[in-house]
Write a protein that binds this DNA or RNA. Structure first.
Length: 309
DNA sequence: AACTTAGGCGGTGAACTTTA
DNA sequence: TAAAGTTCACCGCCTAAGTT
């Protein structure tokens, strides 16, 4: 159910707001795996868990964040989960804020963080402000019919379920047209939602386990957790980046019962310094123990002056 | 027929509020 | 005060309707 917009557009470009500390954090986040932190600090299967994990890494409290912008009330932080389909980078629509809040203010200055849907690794980011053609396209929503015109900004409400307040969303179409989601991005894997769902349903709703392929020959690939043999369509791993896998049953224990997936190790992104290749690989393969989960903000030196401008 | 997209509704635990 | 119920903060997931 779509409702009319409540807040009129500003009609002018937002001034650019920057913060040196946040820029340093964003740079350092490239190649950061979010699964370990999500597993430790957030609820299993909670929908916003990776957003919460990123907030934790950036040193933010999972606070209400009501009318204020996430970062020092200057810059809003938004995760865009991306995956690859037919060679292109795609994403879903994105919730902006509650209907009671002004979405134009929320979107005035945004740090978009791109996270791969398969590996939940940060693959890039973009600082952005509401300006130019992207703003014009979004503002056109104000005059559009919410139901028939497919506006890029819309309000979604629940028909009978009043547990959830109506909220502003931006369409995935606009995220691509506005140039927010890059055309290509290293570290983005193909994702088959139907396979993922069925795989989880096959064993206690557990998420599939990953095995990295580093050029092993057919039949030589081993599970990094238990050493059992893992088989996958290696040609597909090479060409597309990943493939569902089968784990040998003998001796694997619970590991053998869970669904498995093999990805091409060379396609993982590598950050400038953190967390390092080895740690990223361990995190993706689920070999990073709880005690070894560290917080990004603790490793990025906070400058005396955040150099706001 | 196969694939893509838009639209609609769902899930989770913690924090908070109300009732007993 | 304790227990029970509700809201909140996060988007994620599924599927019918379009497209190729």
């Amino acid at each position: 159910m779509r409702l009319p917009l409540r807040h009129p557009p500003p009609g002018r470009d937002a001034p650019e707001l920057r913060c040196a500390h946040l820029e340093a954090l964003a740079d350092a986040a490239l190649g950061l795996a979010l699964r370990p932190a999500a597993a430790v600090f957030t609820a299993q299967r909670s929908r916003g868990r990776f957003g919460n994990a990123l907030q934790w890494h950036l040193g933010l409290e999972p606070h209400d964040g009501l009318a204020q912008l996430d970062w020092e009330d200057r810059i809003e932080l938004k995760i865009i989960t991306v995956w690859r389909r037919g060679g292109r980078i795609v994403c879903d629509k994105l919730k902006v804020c509650d209907l009671a809040l002004d979405p134009w203010h929320k979107l005035s200055n945004v740090l978009w963080v791109f996270v791969d849907r398969l590996t939940r690794v940060v693959v890039g980011h973009r600082f952005w402000r509401l300006a130019g053609p992207a703003r014009a396209a979004l503002e056109a929503s104000w005059r559009m019919d919410p139901h028939f015109d497919s506006p890029p900004l819309f309000v979604e409400a629940r028909e009978q379920d009043d547990r959830q307040a109506p909220a502003y969303y931006v369409s995935s179409q606009w995220l691509r047209d506005a140039g927010i989601v890059p055309d290509d991005l290293h570290g983005v894997f193909p994702f088959d939602a139907a396979w993922w769902r069925d795989a989880r349903a096959s064993f206690r709703r557990a998420e599939p386990l990953f095995t990295l392929w580093r050029g092993e020959a057919e039949g030589q690939l081993r599970c990094p957790r238990c050493g059992g043999r893992v088989r996958a369509e290696l040609a597909r791993v090479r060409e597309e980046g990943g493939s569902p896998a089968v784990h040998e049953l003998s001796g694997g224990g619970e590991c053998a019962l869970r669904p498995h997936y093999v990805i091409d190790a060379t396609r993982l992104p590598l950050g400038p310094h953190n967390p390092g290749r080895l740690e990223l690989e361990e995190a993706v393969e689920g070999r990073l123990s709880e005690e070894r989960v560290w917080r990004l903000t603790d490793r990025v030196i906070e400058p005396e002056d955040h150099l706001h401008w």
